[in-house]
Amino acid sequence: MEKKYKSFAEFYPYYLSEHENSTCRLLHFIGSCLVLIVIAYSVFTSQYVLLWLIPLIGYGFAWVGHFFYEHNKPATFQHPIYSLMGDWVMFKDILIGKISLKPQN
C-alpha cells in the first residue's frame, strides 16, 4: 500500500530516495534538458507537432533510469503530479549543485 503524502515537501525526500543511483539521476537530467530543447525548438520554429515528443522523451529517459539502473518502479505510477514536480525540482537542484550526478561511494 502506497503512502499518501499531504504535501510536496513531505513527498520530495521520498522522491529523492527513489533516485539514489547517479545514472538514473543523469538520465532524468538529460530527459529534462531534451524536453526544454524540444519545447524551445517547437515554439521558435512553429513546429508544434513536435510537442507530442515531450512525454516520450521525458518519461523514456527517466524510466530507463529506473528499470535498468535504480531497479525500482517510477513514482509516476502512484504519485503523478508530485512526481512531475519532483522531476523539475531535482533538475533545478542538479543545476545549482545541490544534488550531484557523481556516483556515491
Score class of each variant (00 low, 15 high):
residue 97 G to P: 06
residue 4 K to S: 13
residue 87 D to Y: 06
residue 62 A to Y: 02
residue 49 V to Q: 14
residue 84 L to K: 02
residue 12 Y to Q: 13
residue 24 C to R: 00
residue 2 E to G: 10
residue 5 Y to V: 01
residue 104 Q to C: 08
residue 76 T to C: 00
residue 95 L to G: 04
residue 14 Y to G: 01
residue 66 H to Y: 12
residue 30 I to S: 05
residue 95 L to I: 13
residue 73 K to S: 10
residue 17 S to C: 10
residue 8 F to T: 04
residue 76 T to M: 09
residue 44 F to N: 13
residue 64 V to F: 00
residue 94 I to G: 09
residue 93 D to V: 04
residue 75 A to Y: 01
residue 91 F to C: 02
residue 38 V to D: 08
residue 90 M to Y: 07
residue 35 V to G: 00
residue 57 I to H: 05
residue 99 I to G: 02
residue 53 L to H: 01
residue 102 K to Y: 03
residue 22 S to F: 03
residue 10 E to H: 07
residue 104 Q to F: 10
residue 18 E to V: 08
residue 43 V to L: 15
residue 97 G to W: 03
residue 84 L to G: 00
residue 6 K to Q: 15
residue 59 Y to R: 02
residue 94 I to Y: 08
residue 93 D to N: 15
residue 74 P to S: 01
residue 48 Y to N: 13
residue 17 S to I: 09
residue 60 G to F: 11
residue 19 H to E: 04
residue 42 S to K: 05
residue 10 E to V: 13
residue 1 M to C: 04
residue 36 L to I: 14
residue 48 Y to E: 03
residue 60 G to K: 05
residue 33 C to M: 13
residue 46 S to A: 05
residue 66 H to T: 09
residue 49 V to P: 06
residue 60 G to Y: 05
residue 99 I to R: 08
residue 29 F to E: 02
residue 2 E to I: 09
residue 91 F to S: 08
residue 12 Y to M: 12
residue 5 Y to P: 07
residue 81 I to Y: 03
residue 55 P to I: 04
residue 104 Q to Y: 12
residue 74 P to K: 13
residue 94 I to S: 07
residue 37 I to V: 15
residue 104 Q to R: 15
residue 91 F to M: 12
residue 13 P to M: 13
residue 32 S to V: 10
residue 9 A to W: 05
residue 79 H to D: 03
residue 10 E to C: 13
residue 54 I to T: 10
residue 69 Y to N: 00
residue 96 I to C: 04
residue 65 G to P: 04
residue 101 L to F: 12
residue 87 D to K: 02
residue 43 V to K: 05
residue 79 H to N: 07
residue 37 I to W: 09
residue 9 A to E: 14
residue 76 T to P: 00
residue 52 W to Q: 11
residue 45 T to M: 06
residue 91 F to P: 07
residue 45 T to R: 14
residue 73 K to A: 07
residue 25 R to M: 08
residue 60 G to C: 11
residue 43 V to M: 15
residue 3 K to N: 12
residue 49 V to E: 14
residue 7 S to R: 01
residue 96 I to S: 07
residue 33 C to P: 01
residue 54 I to F: 11
residue 60 G to A: 05
residue 49 V to W: 15
residue 37 I to N: 01
residue 12 Y to V: 13
residue 92 K to N: 03
residue 1 M to S: 14
residue 69 Y to K: 04
residue 95 L to F: 02
residue 56 L to Q: 00
residue 96 I to K: 12
residue 104 Q to H: 12
residue 86 G to K: 03
residue 84 L to S: 10
residue 48 Y to Q: 12
residue 56 L to A: 08
residue 50 L to H: 14
residue 41 Y to A: 10
residue 19 H to T: 00
residue 13 P to W: 14
residue 7 S to G: 08
residue 13 P to C: 11
residue 87 D to V: 05
residue 36 L to T: 06
residue 81 I to K: 06
residue 56 L to S: 08
residue 50 L to A: 08
residue 42 S to Y: 13
residue 101 L to G: 10
residue 24 C to I: 02
residue 86 G to T: 09
residue 21 N to Q: 06
residue 57 I to M: 07
residue 79 H to M: 06
residue 2 E to S: 10
